[in-house]
Design a protein around this nucleic acid. Structure first.
Lengths: 214, 214
DNA sequence: AATTGTGAAATTGTTCACAGCA
DNA sequence: TGCTGTGAACAATTTCACAATT
């Protein structure tokens, strides 16, 4: 029986996301089963790691044969909780925010952006992909007792913390933060940071380091 | 003397990015020195971790006092290689791509987007923030022997691999990939993946898991 | 007195290697 | 035979704890 009794590491969860996408692709390519070896090869991981990651949640494979592609895909969707719809509010309809409203990958995986907020008078009241932009002042009222479960923050650094306090007060427990700042929230609220400059900085480091050593 | 003789872990580099941003903030708040304890508290890390991370590159602090904010900030910029300008090309001027062209954080840290590519005839030749969009067909010609050092890929999954082959042929060694697919590149090319759905999936998992246990 | 810098210990994460099963 | 599932071995990372320094 699948069980999350053990503490599952962050990296395992991230790899589940990777498996999920790989399995979708394999399904398109009409694979019916896939071995840990082949799956690992595709995603530059090791077979043992694939098997160990999956074994935390149950035994989904058949010895001698491999894993059934569609079934495993569905199982992982269930583990990640993406076999359902999540209602999302997005705060900040600027460059990044606007891009996210139209981001196909979110929609495909059941993340539905249902409310938009901004503090710019020119944007408030306007229509983005069928959603009317609300005033940022109404965050608390609009989120309290609403069906929104996840909030995405895409505002400048300086504004982010003040907003987040309202978001937390409204009872939201999951926040995806695009502002390059560490938001202060209570322990029972989960904040994940998406910092796009960070990976560029990593590349910058790699390039310097490679140059220094070659 | 700072030296990268040891193999530095990915997490250490990512934390350097975090320290860098924190130190910028501290500078704004007119701090002259900061202890590992205080810095750790701000970024929800441990003091020992801050000290160990920094110690890989040298000794930048003063016992009894802490670290000099501006000096350490500059030192980290040097380690990460962001004390200079990097010339960047961006492929795919769609939702995400357009947002990145205007993304302040990149500019601030010296990542200058200098070339744009797209395959949409309506976009080719148009002007985005002063840059004319080139045809994706000319990637190889335009990148070979150019001053571009990093390429950002922001095209749909299906197109990404074909493009990347041209990018690699042109001699580029560093790629930031926004397409949710594992790109195949030679060992000497560094690809970093930025998958924005992944962190949402993590939140989804957390929400489910928390619910199951509470 | 306060805080760094760092070996050593503890913990966490990954890989090995093989028993068990189709 | 081929491949999973997993405990044990190994490797990497984090934390501890304290000598060294201002």
């Amino acid at each position: 029986m699948a069980s999350t009794d053990r503490r599952i590491s962050e990296s395992t969860i991230h790899r589940l996301s990777i498996y999920y996408r790989a399995l979708n692709q394999l399904e398109k390519e009409n694979y019916e089963t896939i071995s840990s070896k082949e799956l690992a090869k595709r995603e530059k991981l090791t077979p043992a790691q694939v098997r160990k990651d999956l074994s935390f949640f149950g035994s989904f494979g058949t010895r001698g044969l491999g894993y059934p592609v569609t079934e495993l895909r569905n199982k992982i969707a269930e583990i990640l909780g993406i076999n359902r719809t999540w209602n999302v509010a997005l705060i900040g309809v600027g460059n990044i925010g606007s891009a996210l409203v139209s981001y196909k990958e979110f929609q495909k995986q059941g993340f539905k952006i249902k409310k938009l907020f901004d503090n710019d008078q020119r944007k408030i009241g306007s229509n983005h992909k069928g959603i009317i932009v609300s005033d940022i002042k109404n965050i608390f009222e609009e989120l309290t007792n609403s069906d929104i479960e996840i909030v995405i923050i895409a505002v400048p650094t300086a504004t982010a913390q003040i907003l987040v306090d309202d978001v937390v007060r409204s009872g939201i427990k999951a926040i995806l933060n695009f502002a390059p700042v560490n938001l202060k929230v209570p322990d029972d609220v989960d904040v994940r940071n998406e910092n796009m400059a960070m990976e560029l900085e990593y590349l910058s480091f790699s390039l310097c380091y490679a140059k220094g050593r070659s």
